[in-house]
Design a protein around this nucleic acid. Structure first.
Lengths: 134, 134
DNA sequence: CTTGACCTTAAAGCTAACTTTAAAGTTATA
DNA sequence: TATAACTTTAAAGTTAGCTTTAAGGTCAAG
């Protein structure tokens, strides 16, 4: 199949596929007589793999490091890195929960100070913030 | 005070302060006879304000939109935006929790398939992933 | 009076993951 | 046959939020 068809099947732009190839994330594709890239069904899985790894938090640069010299995925490396990514995700969750709480209590404070007037000076706002977390 | 002193007090680089000024996030500072920027204590709060807004998820571009024409913070706008930011944070938390779970079950699956051998082919991995979420 | 630590500006560089552009060749359809 | 819809490449542009560089001016200490 041609590049656009593959692109549609996996939900990316053709330029993205060329980009992945240029970065070595995909093998150099074979070409047909006119020079157009020719893809097999297996390319679909290769690209989905990249997208999956990305969704787990791996950068494009990290993806090749998950592979053995034989181009298979190294079980232990993958698990190690997955645990790392899970820890990172969990840390981020904690951080975001704090942020959400911070925002919540700020909203409460602002609402209760609303009685006075419509707006707050930068100084007043700053004071509120300092009482809080910053 | 001079720019480096202010920078140290708020924990940013001098170049960052110049950058904020160039973007209009800070007023044009006054200069002393030699052309050096001169800052008052109030600049500390202005910068901390920016940093706080950033920590709540506001982009530098968004920050000016929180202000009234009189350069005060508009109470209702701020609260509205804070609620928006809180919703965004909460949505992100949910998403990350799913991701963390996804990783967790993937690890379990990989561990249980470990019995067979050391490595998985890309095809095997892809199959595992497809069983899961992707 | 020189050395080093500041300060000034405008412009370019950085990161990641693409996207867009330009200039050109190919193919299917009307 | 023309035109629209593909394809190719290399290179430049995009985004955000800075940082770095270059080329120069200022200032306090020894």
């Amino acid at each position: 199949m041609k590049i656009s068809e593959l692109a549609k099947l996996v939900g990316v732009a053709p330029s993205t596929i060329r980009y992945y190839e240029s970065k070595g994330l995909l093998p150099k594709s074979s070409r047909n007589s006119n020079g157009y890239r020719q893809y097999e069904h297996s390319s679909i899985e290769q690209i989905k793999m990249i997208k999956f790894a990305q969704s787990l938090g791996f950068s494009l640069e990290e993806i090749p490091t998950l592979k053995t010299p034989e181009n298979n995925l190294d079980h232990t490396v993958v698990i190690e890195r997955l645990q790392q990514k899970q820890n990172e995700a969990n840390a981020l969750i904690t951080q975001l929960q704090k942020k959400s709480q911070r925002i919540g209590s700020l909203i409460t404070q602002l609402n209760s100070s609303w009685s006075n007037g419509q707006c707050l000076t930068q100084k007043q706002m700053s004071d509120l913030l300092n009482e809080g977390q910053f």
